[in-house]
Every structure is written in structure tokens, then in C-alpha cells.
């Protein structure tokens, strides 16, 4: 019996769409300590991209990050007998080209929902922007500022925090006032002494 095409595709390499312009719209980096999980999930991400009609490049293997630690074998002295440990972080990059922002978001959301154990993901997403970007960015920034005002007004406020008043109290209210000099009442103006 012949398997359905979609099932048969699982046994084959993931299909991929050809990009029209080749302008990157999303860089997804997958990280893991295990090759098997990483390869599996990268493959899954490629297939998901294909069925969402996204042109995906990759998975591109990025240089692995090797961290090493050397510790003495025993719990006490004997520095001459040590042991090495290492952790290799493997990375794969999947680039989406000419993707529509909402579809890319959908793809990323789907991958996040189907997240596989032991795999870290991070994505850089690029978007097209019309003219007068600065004006709109400023507007957006002002709007966000106004929205965040409620939260920021509560930030770092504590009953016993160092405020202006508490600092004044801390340093003493007479910080600026003239203090009485020692032996104040005995200080007098110099008198000219006539020596002949």
C-alpha cells in the first residue's frame, strides 16, 4: 500500500519554498547540547515553514560554543590530579526569507507551542516600514511612555527609601546653616599692639 504523500514526506528531506527576492525577514537560532534533539527540531521547523508557505534557508550549522572546566578529582588538596569537563552548545540557524510578518509570527508561535525539550530558541525578526518612520516611532514612543507612566510611577518607591526628605534628616537639617564655632564667645577681633 502506498503511503499518503504527506506521510511519505516525513521519510524524505524537508521540502522548501524558493524565495522571490531573498530578503531575510526572520533569523531563528536553535541551541542545544544534544545533536539529535537539535537536528530533529530544526527539521520540524523547516517542515512547519514549508506548510506555512514560508521560504526557509537552513538549517545552517553555526560554530559550537565549547566551555571547559578543570577541577581537582578529590575534595581536598591533591591539585596534581585533576579532571576536565566540557559543555558544547550546538547551534543551528534557520532564516526565513520574504516572509509576511504575521505568518512569521504564526510560525514562531507554533514552534514555541511545540517547543522540544532541551532546545533553546531565539529569533531576530525584520519588518518593512513605510516612509516617515521617525515620526511614527516617536508617536509610538510617546504612547508607550504614557501607558508605562502608571507602572513607572510605582517603580523603586519604598516606604523607607532614601528620598530627599529622608536624606535631609540623615544629614541633619543644619547642613547648610552656620554652626557655632568652638569657643565662640571667646573669639574677639584682633587688637593692634603697640611695641616701642
Amino acid at each position: 500500500m502506498r503511503l499518503p504523500r504527506s506521510v511519505q514526506a516525513i521519510y524524505l528531506r524537508p521540502l522548501r519554498r524558493t524565495p522571490t527576492y531573498g530578503i531575510p525577514s526572520c533569523d531563528l537560532q536553535l541551541r542545544s547540547y544534544s545533536v539529535r534533539n537539535l537536528e530533529f527540531f530544526a527539521d520540524f521547523a523547516m517542515r512547519a515553514a514549508y506548510y506555512l508557505n514560508l521560504a526557509a534557508k537552513g538549517p545552517i550549522p553555526l560554530p559550537q560554543i565549547t566551555e571547559r572546566w578543570t577541577v581537582p578529582r578529590g575534595n581536598f588538596i591533591h591539585k596534581k590530579s585533576q579532571e576536565n569537563f566540557e559543555r558544547k552548545t550546538l547551534r543551528r540557524l534557520i532564516q526565513i526569507q520574504d516572509g509576511h510578518p504575521t505568518v512569521v509570527q504564526c510560525w514562531l508561535g507554533y514552534l514555541e507551542r511545540k517547543a522540544y525539550h532541551g532546545i533553546g530558541m531565539k529569533a531576530n525578526v525584520w519588518d518593512f516600514e513605510g516612509l516617515d518612520v521617525v515620526g511614527r516611532m516617536e508617536e509610538e514612543g510617546d504612547r508607550l511612555d504614557r501607558e508605562m507612566e502608571v507602572h513607572w510611577s510605582n517603580f523603586g518607591v519604598r516606604a523607607n527609601a532614601a528620598t530627599e526628605e529622608s536624606l535631609e534628616k540623615l544629614l541633619g537639617e543644619k547642613a547648610f546653616s552656620r554652626q557655632i564655632r568652638p569657643m565662640e564667645e571667646f573669639i574677639r577681633d584682633p587688637v593692634e599692639v603697640n611695641r616701642s
Binding site: V71, P72, F85, E86, T89
Partner: peptide, 20 residues
């Protein structure tokens, strides 16, 4: 360091293996 070694050898720390 000793706890790290014991845990790494037991496989409790993800990704850490004996290096050579």
C-alpha cells in the same frame, strides 16, 4: 568544585560531560 564534579559525573548537569 567537588559538588560540581560529583553532579557532572552523575549526569545531573545538562550538557556537561567529561572532556578529552
Amino acid at each position: 568544585r567537588f559538588q560540581f564534579r560529583m553532579n557532572a559525573l552523575a549526569g545531573n548537569i545538562p550538557g556537561v560531560k567529561k572532556a578529552s
